[in-house]
Amino acid sequence: MDLGSIAGGAWFEVELRGSTARVCLMADDDYQAYLDGDAYEYHGGFYDVSPVSLEVPYDDYWYLVVNSNDRKIKVQVTQLFD
């Protein structure tokens, strides 16, 4: 999910329904590395409890990737404040 240009300090809440998942908040360069199959860094982790709250650590262009290992999952993302 393309979140766009976001200032550091913004918070997002990710609601997961149907499965546990790995939730990854990635800056633009790391997202491109993820797409290319290269090493990348992300903020987040594996979650089995929802909702998940993530803080954007610094100003950049951000993406959110939710991986549920091919299980059906519904994801709702809300920006709490910026």
Rank of each mutant, 00 (worst) to 15 (best):
K72S: 09
D60G: 04
V66A: 05
D82F: 10
G37Q: 14
Y34A: 01
G9R: 08
L64H: 09
Y31K: 14
Y34H: 02
A39K: 00
E55R: 12
G4L: 04
N67E: 15
G45F: 06
Q32N: 08
E15D: 14
D59S: 08
A10E: 14
E41T: 13
N67C: 11
L3S: 15
R22S: 08
D38I: 00
R17Y: 07
Y40L: 00
S53W: 15
V66H: 02
D38R: 06
I73T: 08
H43N: 05
E41S: 10
R22W: 10
Y34C: 02
S53A: 14
T78G: 04
V77T: 11
D29E: 04
A10D: 15
A21D: 01
E55H: 09
M26S: 02
Y47Q: 13
S50T: 14
F81P: 00
M26G: 00
S53I: 15
D2W: 14
I73R: 05
E13Y: 10
G18V: 13
V14C: 07
S68Y: 05
G37V: 15
R22P: 05
L80V: 11
W11H: 08
S50C: 10
T78N: 11
G8V: 12
F46W: 09
Q32A: 03
G45L: 01
C24L: 11
V66P: 06
Q79N: 11
V49L: 03
M1G: 09
A7F: 05
L64K: 05
V23Q: 02
G45C: 00
R22K: 11
N67G: 08
A21V: 01
E41M: 07
D29S: 04
K72Y: 06
E15V: 15
S50L: 06
T78F: 07
G4S: 00
V75Q: 01
Y63P: 08
D38W: 07
T78I: 09
D70K: 00
Y34S: 05
D2H: 15
D82W: 13
V75C: 03
V23F: 08
S68D: 04
V52Q: 05
Q76H: 05
G45E: 02
M26Y: 02
V65E: 01
R17C: 00
D59I: 01
W11N: 14
Y31R: 12
F46I: 03
D38N: 10
I73M: 04
D59H: 03
L25Q: 06
V52S: 10
C24P: 00
G9S: 13
Y61V: 08
Y63H: 13
D28L: 09
Y58P: 03
D38E: 13
R17K: 07
G44C: 05
D30T: 06
N69Y: 12
D36N: 15
V66L: 06
A10Q: 15
S68K: 02
A7W: 11
S53E: 14
